Every structure is written in C-alpha cells, then in structure tokens.
Deep mutational scan, measured.
Amino acid sequence: LETFPLDVLVNTAAEDLPRGVDPSRKENYLSDEDFKAVFGMTRSAFANLPLWKQQNLKKEKGLF
C-alpha cells in the first residue's frame, strides 16, 4: 500500500485525496512512523480498539 505524508491526508476532502486513497481509511496510508506519531500507538494496538474509539481518534486527528 502506498503511503502519503500526513499533511496530504489530514483534513482533506475525499475529492482532494491522491488517486486510490480510500477516504474512510486514511490512516492506512500513513507510514508506520507517522501513524505512531499521530495516534501514539502501533497499528495493531489501534486495530484492537473498539470501532467507536478508532473513529473518535480519527476525528480528533483530522483523518475521518
């Protein structure tokens, strides 16, 4: 999966995202380093959170 810089994904409308980016899964296009910096946890820890908590975190970080 291709990764993009944080500033390309945060608070970006679906139509302005790079081609192929799923707007409902912007976090998947962050590098592992950016993911950890944004969410303060690994991808696996994030995946283990309840869906509502994942969505709330994504909203807080501008990735929803």
Rank of each mutant, 00 (worst) to 15 (best):
T3Q: 07
M41I: 09
G20F: 08
W52C: 10
D34V: 08
F39A: 00
L49P: 00
Q54V: 04
R43M: 06
L9C: 02
E33G: 10
F35R: 00
S44D: 13
N56G: 10
R25F: 11
P5W: 03
E33S: 13
A37C: 10
L57D: 02
R25V: 08
L49S: 03
G20N: 09
G20D: 08
L30W: 02
V21L: 07
G20M: 05
K26Y: 03
F4G: 03
E27K: 00
V21R: 02
F4Q: 04
N28R: 08
Q55H: 11
D7K: 09
G20H: 08
D32A: 11
K58S: 03
N11E: 06
R43F: 09
T12M: 09
L6C: 05
T42K: 08
L63W: 04
S24K: 09
F4Y: 15
F35G: 00
A45S: 11
L30Q: 01
A45V: 13
V38D: 00
D16R: 04
Y29W: 10
D34M: 05
Q54E: 00
G62H: 07
F4T: 03
D22P: 01
G40F: 08
F35E: 00
V8P: 01
F35C: 00
D16L: 05
G40N: 15
A47D: 12
K59Q: 11
E2H: 13
L57A: 07
L51N: 10
N56T: 12
T12Q: 07
P50R: 03
R19I: 15
T3R: 08
L49V: 05
K58H: 01
N28G: 06
P5D: 06
E27Q: 03
S31N: 09
K58A: 04
A47N: 11
P23D: 07
R43L: 06
E27N: 01
V10G: 03
E15I: 09
D7L: 09
L6G: 02
L1V: 14
L51S: 10
L49I: 06
N48A: 13
D7H: 15
D32W: 06
A45N: 11
G62Q: 05
P18I: 03
F39G: 00
P23S: 07
L6V: 09
L30Y: 01
T42M: 11
D34P: 00
N56C: 13
G62I: 01
A45R: 11
K59A: 10
E60K: 10
V38R: 01
A47P: 00
F64E: 12
Y29I: 02
S44N: 13
D22C: 06
R43D: 01
N11V: 07
E33R: 10
A47L: 11
F46K: 00
L17Q: 03
A45T: 12
R19K: 15
A13Y: 08
L57I: 09
G62L: 06
R43H: 08
K36Y: 14
D22G: 01
N48W: 09
A14N: 15
N56R: 12
A37N: 12
A37H: 11
K53R: 10
E15D: 14
E27Y: 03
K58N: 01
E15Y: 04
R19E: 15
D16P: 03
A14I: 14
R19T: 15
K36D: 14
R25Q: 10
N28A: 13
M41L: 08
K53M: 13
N11I: 05
R43V: 05
P23T: 05
N48Y: 10
D7R: 08
F35M: 04
P23L: 05
L63H: 02
L6H: 04
K53G: 08
R19S: 15
Q54G: 00
F35W: 03
A14K: 10
N48E: 11
T42W: 05
L6D: 01
P18N: 03
K61I: 08
G40W: 05
L57Y: 06
S31A: 08
L17W: 06
L51Q: 11
F39D: 00
A13E: 09
N48S: 14
F64R: 04
A14V: 12
E27L: 01
R43W: 07
G40R: 13
L63P: 02
T3D: 03
V21F: 06
R19W: 15
D34E: 08
V8Q: 10
L17T: 04
N48G: 14
Q54Y: 01
G20A: 07
Q54T: 01
D22Y: 02
S44G: 13
W52S: 11
K53V: 14
V38W: 04
G40V: 06
S24G: 10
A13S: 12
R19G: 15
D34H: 05
A37P: 00
R43K: 13
W52D: 11
V10E: 05
A37F: 14
L9S: 01
T42R: 07
E2M: 15
A47V: 14
A14R: 09
V38L: 09
L1Y: 15
E33D: 13
T42E: 14
K61V: 15
A14D: 15
P50F: 02
T12G: 08
D16F: 06
E2Q: 15
F4A: 02
P23N: 04
P5H: 05
L49F: 08
F64W: 15
E27G: 01
F39S: 00
S44T: 14
S31I: 05
L49K: 04
P18H: 04
S24P: 02
K26I: 15
Y29N: 05
E60F: 06
D32Y: 07
G20C: 11
E15K: 10
F64K: 06
L49W: 05
D7I: 09
F35D: 00
F39C: 00
A45E: 13
G62N: 07
D32P: 10
E15Q: 09
V8R: 10
E27A: 01
V10M: 13
D22K: 11
P18T: 01
S31W: 02
K61Y: 12
K58Q: 02
K53L: 15
S44K: 11
V38H: 06
T12F: 08
L49M: 11
G20S: 06
F35V: 01
N11P: 03
P5C: 04
R25G: 05
Q55F: 08
M41V: 06
W52P: 09
K53W: 11
N28Y: 11
D34N: 05
R43T: 04
A47S: 11
K61L: 08
A14T: 13
V21N: 03
Y29T: 02
E15H: 08
V8C: 08
L9D: 02
K36I: 14
K59H: 09
V10S: 06
N28C: 11
L30T: 01
A47H: 14
P50A: 09
F39L: 08
L9Q: 01
A45I: 12
L9K: 01
F4I: 08
T12L: 08
A14S: 11
K53Q: 14
P50T: 08
V21S: 03
A37Q: 12
R25E: 05
A37E: 14
A14Y: 08
W52G: 09
P50H: 05
D16C: 14
